[in-house]
C-alpha cells in the first residue's frame, strides 16, 4: 500500500525532468534479459517442456523494462519505479533457481522443482487450479459470513446488555480460545456432509475473534456519546445502531481481520482432512503423487487468494472508516 502512495507522488517530480532515464528499470531489464539468455542457451540437465516459454517470458519482461527505462515518461511506467530493486532481485533469484535445479541439478529432485516445471503446472493444469480456487471460495465465504454475522451480533449484545454478557462471557471464555480444528473429529461425525462440517468449523473460527473484538469495541464506547443522543430523545435501538455500532467499528474490523486469518487455516485443514475439493485437497492429492510442482503452484495460488481477500477486507474498512484517517475529504 505504501508503494502506491510513493508512486502517487512521483509524477510531480517527473514533470520537472520529463525525460530522465529510469536507471533501476534499465538494470532490471538487463537482469531479466540475462536470465532469459541463461534459460534458453544453457542446456537443461533433463527434458523440460516449458523451457522455451520461460525464456520467452523472461526476455519479454526484460525488453519491456528496457523500453520503459528508455522512455522514462510519466504514466504507468512511473508507477513501476519503486519496484525497480525488487525486479532486479527477482531476476537474480530466477537465475539462481535455474542453476540449482534445471541447469546443474544440485538439489534433490522430487522436492525441489525447476521454474519451468512450475510454469508447466500453470499452463497445463490451470482449469483444475481455477476450479479448486472456486471450490475453496465457495466453502470459505459462506462459513466466514455466517461466523462473522453471528459473532458481530453476539459481540454487540454482550457489550450492550449486562445480562447477555453475564451468560455469554464464561461460555466464550471457555470455548473461544480452543482452536476450531480441535472440533474436527466431532464436526465430521455430527454433520451429515463434510461440507456442512467445514462450514461450521470455519464459522466457529471466525466467530470468536469477531465476537470478542465487537464486544470490547461496544463496551468501550464513551458514555458521553450515549448521553448526547439520549438528551435529544434517542431510544435504545437508535443508540445501538447509530452510536454503539459505528463507534465500535474500528475494533470490529480488527476482529474481522483476525477471523479471516483463522478461517483460512480451518479451510485448508478441512480440505486436507475431508472435503474432496479445493486448493487444500489439490495440494494433498498432488503430494500423494509426488507432484511437488503442483503442490507449490497450488500454494502460490492459495497465497494469492488469501492476500486478495485480506486486501478486499482492508478496502472495505478504508471505505467505512474514511473518517478515521487524517486525509481531507470533502
Amino acid at each position: 500500500m505504501s508503494a502506491s502512495v510513493e508512486a502517487g507522488s512521483l509524477p510531480a517530480a517527473q514533470d520537472i525532468r520529463p525525460w530522465r532515464v529510469w536507471a533501476g528499470g534499465g538494470a532490471a531489464g538487463l537482469a531479466w534479459l540475462a536470465a532469459a539468455g541463461i534459460v534458453l542457451a544453457w542446456p537443461d540437465i533433463d527434458e523440460y517442456g516449458r523451457t522455451e516459454l520461460l525464456g520467452g517470458v523472461a526476455a519479454a519482461v526484460g525488453l519491456l523494462l528496457v523500453a520503459a527505462a528508455m522512455a522514462g515518461a510519466p504514466g504507468p511506467v512511473a508507477r513501476l519505479r519503486p519496484a525497480g530493486p525488487w525486479l532486479v532481485a527477482l531476476a537474480i533469484g530466477l537465475i539462481a533457481w535455474e542453476f540449482v535445479t534445471a541447469k546443474l541439478d544440485l538439489l534433490p529432485r522430487p522436492f525441489f522443482v525447476a521454474p519451468q516445471a512450475l510454469l508447466e503446472v500453470f499452463t497445463d493444469d490451470y482449469a483444475k487450479l481455477g476450479e479448486s480456487v472456486l471450490h475453496s471460495l465457495l466453502l470459505l465465504i459462506p462459513g466466514y459470513l455466517l461466523g462473522a454475522t453471528i459473532g458481530f451480533v453476539t459481540g454487540v449484545a454482550m457489550g450492550w446488555s449486562r445480562r447477555v454478557g453475564y451468560w455469554a462471557h464464561p461460555v466464550l471464555r471457555l470455548i473461544g480460545p480452543l482452536p476450531a480444528t480441535a472440533w474436527l473429529p466431532i464436526a465430521f461425525f455430527a454433520f451429515s456432509t463434510s461440507r456442512q462440517a467445514s462450514t461450521f468449523l470455519i464459522a466457529l473460527a471466525t466467530f470468536f475473534p469477531v465476537a470478542v473484538l465487537t464486544w470490547s469495541g461496544v463496551a468501550s464506547v464513551a458514555g458521553s456519546l450515549y448521553d448526547v443522543a439520549r438528551t435529544m430523545g434517542a431510544r435504545p435501538w437508535f443508540l445501538i445502531r447509530k452510536v454503539a455500532v459505528p463507534a465500535a467499528l474500528p475494533s470490529v474490523f480488527v476482529g474481522l481481520f483476525m477471523g479471516l486469518g483463522s478461517s483460512f487455516s480451518v479451510l485448508v485443514v478441512a480440505e486436507m482432512m475431508g472435503v474432496k475439493a479445493g486448493l487444500g485437497f489439490y495440494m494433498q492429492w498432488s503430494q500423494g503423487w509426488a507432484a511437488y510442482a503442483n503442490v507449490y503452484a497450488a500454494l502460490l495460488v492459495l497465497a494469492g487468494m488469501c492476500t486478495g481477500l485480506v486486501t478486499l477486507l482492508f478496502r472495505l474498512r478504508d471505505g467505512k472508516l474514511a473518517w478515521q484517517k487524517g486525509v481531507v475529504r470533502w
Binding site: 448526547v228 435529544m232 452510536v243 459505528p246 472508516l321 473518517w323 478515521q324
Partner: peptide, 16 residues
C-alpha cells in the same frame, strides 16, 4: 429534546 445539554467537550461523533 426540549431540554438539551451541551457539554464541555463537543462530543461530536467522529464518524459523522
Amino acid at each position: 429534546p426540549s431540554r438539551v445539554l451541551m457539554f464541555q467537550d463537543p462530543t461530536l461523533y467522529p464518524w459523522r
